[in-house]
């Protein structure tokens, strides 16, 4: 019985430490969120979405319309590039290539790729899509974001497809369906909710990214539906305005940060809720 005592003490100590660390982490997170909330709510008004930046001397008259549009365009283009490739790639891993060693390797590499710092991806895309063309451009920004979501979408698609029971595929094969019809009509239909959730969470992941854009599409004051030059970016604007000496620019950065945070939070909540609902139903 005596040797139990030190074990219990160690247990208590570790538990206290772990709880303290968790509390500290949460505490810092709440301070950040609270700060964004307080400063963001103070600065936000409709002009943020309706106007472009005013000179720093004209207090309170500007907005970040172009930056919102540009960020939206970049994210949308990234999704248009990354989602089809990711879903098809994940489909290959889980279906056509499920017995192949290469699939296993791609799957593991994707897991690793999920945690590559985004700035590294930015630098990589800079080297292949910015440097050779001699200017920052929107395509490079969209590609950088697409590279970030690609492994996330590949892996969620693979996991979701693997959750579809084999018996269901066999039943479709037994009806005389060719493989692509089984995937399209049966597997995707069963896994659609999960894949959609994965896409949402992946978009949430890039919606607030700054580093990969800093090297690629950079920033611009005016939005045009054209990705061959620099594209206005909300996150890069936040980065630049927050570091500026002008009070109205700084408060605009707060407002924008607040909007981005809410958007990411919203996507995450919707995504997790969808997961929860599906696990239950």
């Amino acid at each position: 019985m005596r040797h139990l005592k030190p074990r219990k003490a160690v247990n208590a100590l570790i538990m206290t430490l772990a709880t303290l660390c968790a509390a500290l982490g949460l505490f810092l997170l709440f301070i950040i969120l609270f700060d964004v909330l307080r400063n963001g709510l103070k600065a936000i008004d409709w002009n943020l979405f309706l106007r472009d930046p005013a000179p720093p001397t004209m207090a309170g008259a500007g907005g970040l319309k172009s930056a919102f549009l540009g960020q939206g365009l970049l994210t949308l283009t990234a999704a248009l590039i990354g989602v089809p490739i990711g879903v098809l790639g994940g489909t290959y891993l889980a279906e056509y290539g499920r017995h192949k060693k290469i699939s296993r390797a791609i799957s593991i590499l994707s897991d690793i790729a999920v945690s590559i710092p985004s700035i590294v991806i930015g630098a990589f895309v800079y080297a292949i899509l910015v440097n050779p063309f001699g200017s920052y451009n929107g395509w490079a920004g969209a590609v950088a974001l697409a590279v970030i979501i690609l492994p996330i979408i590949i892996r969620t698609t693979e996991d979701m497809i693997n959750m579809v029971p084999w018996a269901l595929r066999e039943a479709a094969f037994a009806m005389g369906a060719p493989y692509h019809r089984v995937i399209w009509g049966i597997v995707y239909r069963s896994a659609a909710g999960g894949i959609f959730t994965g896409v949402l969470l992946a978009i949430a992941r890039i919606a607030g990214e700054t580093a990969p854009l800093l090297f690629t599409s950079f920033n611009s004051n005016f939005f045009r539906l054209n990705l061959s030059g620099p594209v206005p970016s909300l996150t890069v604007s936040i980065y630049q305005y927050a570091a500026s000496p002008y009070e109205n620019w700084v408060s605009m950065a707060w407002a924008a940060a607040f909007v981005v945070t809410c958007f990411v939070l919203f996507l995450n909540i919707v995504g997790r809720l969808a997961i929860k609902l599906r696990v239950k139903g």
């Binding site: 039943a171 479709a172 009806m175 005389g176 009509g185 049966i186 239909r189 069963s190």
Partner: peptide
């Protein structure tokens, strides 16, 4: 594909496809 339309199979556990009753029957 044509062989399997000549010989149907019913498994141990029911395998309804994730679609409506009508679409299940219309699948083949």
């Amino acid at each position: 594909i044509s062989l399997r339309s000549r010989l149907g199979m019913v498994f141990q556990k029911p395998t309804p496809f994730p679609m409506s009753v009508f679409d299940n029957i219309a699948y083949g």
